[in-house]
Amino acid sequence: MPVWLELVVRVVGVVAAFLVLPLVVGQAEHKVMAHMQGRLGPMYAGGFHGWAQLIADGVKFVQKEDVTPREADRAVFRLAPVVALVPYLLALLVIPLGPNDLVGQPLDIGLFFVLAVVGVGVVAVLMSAWASANKYSLLGGLRGAAQLLGYELPLVLAAASVAMAAGTLSLPGIVEAWRPWWLLWQAPAMLVFFVAGLAEIRRPPFDMPVADSELVFGYMTEYTGLRFAFFLLAEYVGIVVIAALTTVLFLGGWQGPFGDAYLGWLWTLIKVFLVSFVIIWLRVSYPRLREDQLQRLCWLVLVPVALGQLVLTAGVRLAIA
């Protein structure tokens, strides 16, 4: 296969995943949330159990007027949704789906790349918050910045623990080094990573920056139409990215009960959807944290646990080696 063709195939694959997986997760959220609340959820769009609801939503968003507030900083305001979306697209590029380079772009230090790129998403929050010229947006943005800055630390520390255990920063390398018993001794890191990841993508119960009952819609208050759809899409891609990272780092990625070599992609997808289900489940079950509880959880629980896990991992590594 010539190089350019391979490149095209990989890029098309990643873009397809970028467009399809969030829709699947979003639809699953609609239905799962509805049934957890004793409802049916969308039933009409597309005929069978409303499967085309999100596509219809997309069409609706495209038709809506694109409003930019008069007082807003136009350039920054318009750029923010793109800045929110692109990091997740880049992150999807390096997450392995299966063995033998079944990945958008194999990268030697993929873990660092993903963490760095996901961290850039904060800038989009601040940009949209400030440029909207709206006090609710600004409040949401400040909350978002404080939250994302804080939770980046446990996220990176937990990821560092598993990287230390695997002895590599490459995501496929980590999956290859993973053994089932890691589920046990990396469990605290997994919990910390998952919770911090939830906070990073601002999902309930960590959605203080958008808290619709307090701040209208936080930093997204002034957005309409396609730009708002971009933010929503970013949220769902964020779920996919965090679920995929949790899968790859802590749940063994493509390692399944049998046939890893040719069924690996299936195991990865199943695990990603299971973790996504848990993310949706948490959203339905728990109320939003208060701002001070949020910071308390981060600095007094997650960071110490992550540091303890680092010490444990280092100890076990030294004992084995």
Partner: peptide, 21 residues
């Protein structure tokens, strides 16, 4: 309490919805 909350939503999901179509 956290586990109880999760159990409630999961149990509701396995039951029939109350929606009248």
């Amino acid at each position: 309490g956290l586990a109880k909350g999760l159990a409630v939503t999961l149990r509701t999901m396995t039951r029939r919805a109350h929606t009248q179509q």
